[in-house]
Design a protein around this nucleic acid. Structure first.
Lengths: 243, 243
DNA sequence: CTTCTCGGTTGATAAATATCAATTTTAGTA
DNA sequence: TACTAAAATTGATATTTATCAACCGAGAAG
């Protein structure tokens, strides 16, 4: 089964030192800081620490959402698989992200696939534990609502961008997203193929490459393999806004 | 101020009889059934009952999300406003829907506009009340999480559909959505202009009209003004799936 | 009754984007 | 180092979708 951890290591006992307070963090502050030590222990008790190689599938769309995954180290991509072999990469998740799989509170089916881009270290936590904590700790419920809301808004912006912008605008959006929200540094190494980058913008690889080249020849970015350097962020923002 | 209720009527005292248990319902079961009578009274105490005429703006994008709206009667459209006068209608909301505005748990800014399609009767409830109930009643928090999740998944499907399907597939999706999720009957009267219908699929009005005509001439639907009759749902589903 | 306006419709054309095939580069491996 | 396979790039072309302009028809206003 693809969705089952390949190499299940022993539950990480050291985690009682609140290492997990950093696992469920999708942004600055940790969603897990609000838990008491006992609650954290409950969460951590039967968790599975799993290692994935680049390219391996961590969660598979349409399987049951029995677990929540939190990424300790590495980079993964979230893929919505459509009809045929069409796919859309919704976003990337990096170290200290929590992944609910798109449907843990409803239907209990995962609505997207998650695949490792680099090596990934992560923990599998039983969804039941999350439900339990929601009822025990209202602050935690609140944090989860916030997280959910945030993802909702991100997807909304994605939807608006993809439907209302021409290709250069979408590519600009992608590059700014990668720099400002994922890699947080300027020459950044995406580790992603051109096909994968194209799949994040909903366009074909060939079209993506052409736009990238245009940006390169107009001196806005420089590209070396999977490494991208944004030279003129203002120009890129302008392209993003103008569509 | 557009976002302020135009005609504020007195708080609906009769609501203690749990009429509100039907207000926050986005599907079959009410999100509000889990509240105790006292909690319901708290919620209802200072709420405002407001009437909107067709075309009026109920909530405006980028204003502060100080209130939650629940629709008692009528039909409204949720619009994501983009650059220029581009707009995308995300979905419709009908009687017994709750509207959090896309950002009540985070940023506290509304991320979309809501506009009345027909006459709308609705209640404005202070967001603080919602926060309060989340901390008091974990079942309520759970229900909110479910609602949020559901909207997330719907938007995801929308995103995948719009990016991966050709126009006929998107129109088919729209018609099936209108029939099965909004109007729940077969010849249904959308009350929406061609432009609005087109805005739900992310295409231009002219393109939308052409696809509609194709469906009409192949005998899959019949159209009379804003009333649409799906004659061959299987064929439509096939078009939806094939893209 | 006529005129005007506006939403809907149609056709011709242009623009954006995808597809297909060929070629080059890169990276891995014998 | 040479060979091979995969990924990236480029060019030519086809398809999809948008744009623009004209036209139609129903209802409102004069």
């Amino acid at each position: 089964m693809i969705m089952e951890p390949r190499r299940i290591e022993e539950a990480c006992v050291k985690c009682k030192d609140r290492c997990c307070s950093r696992c469920f963090d999708d942004g600055e502050e940790s969603i897990f800081n609000c838990l008491t030590t006992e609650e954290l222990e409950l969460l951590v008790k039967e968790k599975r620490h799993v290692h994935f190689n680049a390219g391996e599938t961590i969660l598979k769309q349409n399987t049951s959402a029995s677990h929540v995954v939190c990424i300790k180290r590495g980079l993964a991509k979230i893929i919505a698989e459509g009809e045929g072999d069409k796919k859309l990469i919704l976003r990337l998740v990096a170290t200290h992200s929590i992944l609910t799989g798109g449907g843990i509170f409803i239907e209990e089916i995962r609505h997207f696939t998650v695949q490792a881009v680099t090596e990934v270290e992560c923990c599998f936590i039983d969804s039941e534990k999350i439900y339990e904590l929601v009822s025990k700790n209202s602050q935690f419920a609140f944090e989860l609502l916030k997280l959910n809301n945030k993802q909702n808004i991100q997807m909304l912006n994605n939807l608006v961008g993809i439907t209302q912008k021409y290709m250069p605008g979408r590519v600009a959006d992608l590059l700014l997203y990668l720099k400002n929200e994922i890699f947080l540094c300027n020459p950044f190494d995406t580790r992603l193929s051109r096909q994968e980058l194209a799949d994040m913008t909903g366009m074909t690889m060939e079209s993506f490459i052409r736009i990238l080249k245009e940006l390169k020849t107009s001196g806005i970015i420089s590209v070396d393999g999977s490494q991208i350097h944004i030279l003129d962020e203002d120009a890129l923002s302008l392209i993003s806004r103008k569509g």
